[in-house]
Design a protein around this nucleic acid. Structure first.
Length: 357
DNA sequence: TCTGGGGTCCTAGGACCC
DNA sequence: TCTGGGGTCCTAGGACCC
């Protein structure tokens, strides 16, 4: 493994949404706090976005149905997400972190990768830099962050999750194998619920099991992902820290309070979603060409229908007309709809469009 | 336990062009 | 009358991330 020596940091804000809420409302500090859908006395139908550590102690987790959270912890403070606030705080934190890096890559709202290879000589300096970042974020943002330091993005990412909250984990090149091997395979990036289940059938439970498995067999079973997974399990990741530029799609979706087969209810929701999407593309000066309708029926049966228009547009009329045509064949009296969504893609910025003409 | 909302990337088949 | 090979775009679905 003759890779160029790199020093990569991964920052992960601790229980970000609830941490921001605790900062804004000091009176809720020390209580169980859950940001997510309205629990409606245990009858709500959404999920938990984030729970703080008091709530986690009794088993409340991100992604869990809000009704389940209510049974575990009815006395918690339940708050709806305040995304504009979280985005604002995120921007403040990212600005602090960015200046420590040669290369910076934001990852979701509350994580980031930093390539600091040009800023440090060795892991001792990398660790000191991480401490500096943590204290500046705590001082200026009033928030704690967990940081992983390693020779590549994968190792840094797994390391940041190793000790939480307020953690700092450094994994040197020669420690990578020993660090990864005992961890459950689901801790590896890109190994989600489905892949974990398939791996379990092969007797693969830890990252070490995966690293020792035959790469050819994995490739036969999982295609390119199998090969990639085997490399990651051995701690090999050559991907670069890259600034992300521009979104590739814009979408909005909504779940009905109750599953419905009423065409007027569904069409009203569709129009509202089109308006949201159109406003957002307009605000970002984007034109779109591909329109995708998403529809989910009872029992989670989900379909998408996409259409690429012969022209770029950001007109509400085009969006509403296209999605209505896409929806029509799905509207049936006996089929209850759970969710609908609208997405636009094949985006081009208006400035770029001008230069193309 | 009964599953939100916003994204990215990959696969596979088919159409179409040269 | 039976038929290559390469490339690109489109569509539908699925897995994963936060």
């Amino acid at each position: 493994m003759n890779e160029r020596q790199r020093f990569i940091l991964h920052l992960d804000m601790d229980h970000f949404y609830t941490a921001v809420e605790e900062r804004e409302h000091p009176e809720i500090k020390g209580k169980a706090v859950i940001v997510g859908s309205d629990p409606k006395g245990g009858k709500g139908r959404g999920v938990v976005s984030t729970s703080n550590y008091v709530a986690r102690k009794v088993g409340v987790r991100s992604g869990m149905p809000i009704s389940h959270a209510w049974r575990l912890c009815p006395e918690a403070v339940y708050l709806p997400p305040n995304f504009p606030l979280y985005i604002k705080v995120s921007e403040e934190i990212m600005e602090i972190a960015r200046k420590y890096a040669d290369k910076f890559e934001q990852w979701g709202i509350d994580e980031a990768f930093l390539d600091v290879t040009g800023k440090v000589h060795g892991y001792v300096e990398a660790e000191n830099l991480a401490r500096q970042i943590k204290s500046e974020i705590k001082e200026k943002g009033g928030l704690t962050v967990s940081i992983g330091v390693g020779p590549n993005k994968l190792v840094a990412k797994v390391a940041s999750d190793f000790q939480k909250p307020d953690g700092l984990t450094v994994v040197r090149d020669e420690e990578v194998e020993v660090f990864l091997a005992p961890l459950p395979v689901c801790k590896l990036l890109w190994v989600g619920r489905k892949t974990e289940a398939k791996l379990k059938e092969l007797g693969i439970n830890t990252i070490g099991d995966l690293a020792n498995y035959d790469a050819t067999a994995l490739t036969e079973m999982f295609g390119v992902m199998g090969w990639q997974m085997h490399l990651l399990a051995r701690g090999i990741d050559r991907s670069e820290v890259e600034e992300r530029v521009g979104v590739k799609s814009v979408s909005h979706e909504t779940t009905f309070e109750q599953d419905t087969a009423h065409a007027n209810v569904i069409l009203d929701a569709l129009n509202a979603l089109c308006l949201d999407v159109q406003k957002e593309t307009e605000a970002q000066n984007l034109l779109f060409k591909t329109v995708t309708l998403k529809i989910r029926f009872e029992h989670f049966e989900t379909h998408t229908k996409s259409k690429t228009l012969p022209f770029l547009t950001n007109r509400l009329y085009d969006l509403q007309k296209t999605t209505r045509e896409q929806l029509a064949p799905y509207l049936m009296k006996n089929r209850k709809v759970k969710l609908i969504g609208v997405r636009v893609s094949s985006l081009v910025s208006m400035e770029k469009q001008k230069t193309l003409i």
